[in-house]
C-alpha cells in the first residue's frame, strides 16, 4: 500500500453505529450480596482477633517446647498468675494507681500543649518558641530527666507526672502544630470571612480541620506516656502504698516470679489495646471517619 492510499483510507468517514441498550432484566446478576465468610473477614475486629489467637498459640507451643517456666512461662501459666492477682485485687490496684498518675500527666500535657500551639499559630514569637523548644526537648528521653525530676520533686507522684508531661507535651504539640499548618488556606479564609479571628479561629476552624493530626498526636502521646510511666515506676515505685504496674513488675522479677512479670506486662498491653481499640477508635468513628477525613 502506498502512503497515498493509507491517507485516503484514513480520511474516509467511518459509518456511525447506534445500538439499543439491552433490557436490564435479561442481563441477570448486576450486583449481589457478598458471601458469609467474606463478610466475616471484612470485620476488622475478627481479623485482629485471629491474629491474637495465632500469636497466643505460637507462645504456648514455644513455651512448652522450651519447658523453662523461670525464663519463659507459657501462656497458660501467665494467665493463671494474671487471674490470681486480678482476683486478689493486687493487679487492679496497681493498674488503677498507674492509670491515675498517667491521666494526671497526660491531661496536664494536653492542656499545656493546647496553650502552646494556640500561641504558636497566632503569633510569630509563639511559633519560634514552640519550634525551638520542640526541637530541643522532643529528642530528650523522659528517663534521662528522671534524676532531675527526683531532685526537684522528690520520690513521689509529682516526679512521675513531670516526666510524663515532658514525654507527651512535645509529641502532641508537634503533631497539633503540624496539623494547624496543613489546614488549607481556603478553609482559613472561609473562617476569617465570617469574622473569626484569633482564639475563635483556632477553636472553630483550626482544631476540627486539623483533627486527624491532633488525634495522631494524642495516640502517640498516650503511648509515650505509658512507656514513661512504666519505666519510671520500674526505677522507684510510687510513694507509700499506691504502687503502680511498673513496681508490680519490678517486685515480681525480684521474687523470680516470671509468670507474674508476664502478667504485669500483659496488663500493660491489655490496657493499651483497650484504649486504642475502644477509646481512640470510637473518637475516630465519631469524628474523622464520619467527616470523610480518613478513608480506611
Amino acid at each position: 500500500m502506498t502512503d497515498a492510499t493509507v491517507t485516503q483510507l484514513r480520511n474516509r468517514p467511518r459509518p456511525d453505529i447506534e445500538r439499543e441498550p439491552e433490557d436490564i432484566s435479561r442481563i441477570g446478576e448486576i450486583s449481589r450480596p457478598i458471601g458469609l465468610w467474606e463478610g466475616i473477614f471484612a470485620i476488622t475486629a475478627v481479623r485482629r482477633a485471629l491474629v491474637l489467637v495465632g500469636l497466643g498459640i505460637a507462645w504456648e507451643v514455644y513455651a512448652r517446647w522450651v519447658g523453662n517456666p523461670l525464663m519463659f512461662p507459657s501462656l497458660s501459666d501467665t494467665l493463671s498468675a494474671w487471674w490470681a492477682d486480678m482476683s486478689s485485687g493486687r493487679l487492679p490496684g496497681a493498674a488503677a494507681s498507674s492509670l491515675r498518675v498517667l491521666l494526671i500527666g497526660y491531661g496536664t500535657a494536653i492542656a499545656l500543649s493546647a496553650v502552646m500551639t494556640t500561641l504558636a499559630v497566632s503569633t510569630r514569637v509563639g511559633t519560634d518558641l514552640l519550634a525551638t523548644l520542640t526541637a530541643m526537648f522532643n529528642p530528650l528521653p523522659a528517663i534521662a530527666i528522671l534524676p532531675l525530676a527526683l531532685l526537684w520533686f522528690g520520690l513521689g507522684t509529682s516526679s512521675i507526672v513531670f516526666v510524663i508531661v515532658h514525654s507527651v507535651l512535645w509529641a502532641v504539640s508537634l503533631n497539633t502544630f503540624t496539623g494547624f499548618l496543613s489546614v488549607s488556606q481556603t478553609q482559613r479564609m472561609a473562617g476569617r470571612n465570617y469574622g473569626l479571628g484569633g482564639l475563635r479561629l483556632v477553636i472553630f476552624i483550626l482544631i476540627p480541620a486539623a483533627f486527624p493530626s491532633i488525634l495522631a498526636g494524642l495516640k502517640i502521646g498516650w503511648a509515650f506516656a505509658w512507656r514513661t510511666l512504666i519505666a519510671a515506676e520500674l526505677v522507684f515505685g510510687v510513694s507509700g502504698n499506691a504502687a503502680g504496674l511498673g513496681w508490680y513488675i519490678f517486685e515480681a522479677r525480684n521474687a523470680l516470679e516470671t509468670a507474674t512479670v508476664f502478667a504485669g506486662l500483659l496488663t500493660v498491653i491489655l490496657i493499651g489495646l483497650a484504649v486504642e481499640g475502644i477509646v481512640f477508635r470510637s473518637i475516630e468513628a465519631a469524628t474523622i471517619r464520619k467527616w470523610g477525613m480518613q478513608n480506611h
Binding site: T186, Q187, M189, P208, A209
Partner: peptide, 11 residues
C-alpha cells in the same frame, strides 16, 4: 465563594 471544594467544613 472559592474555587476549591474544601471551602466547606468537612466536620
Amino acid at each position: 465563594v472559592f474555587q476549591e471544594f474544601d471551602q466547606l467544613m468537612p466536620w
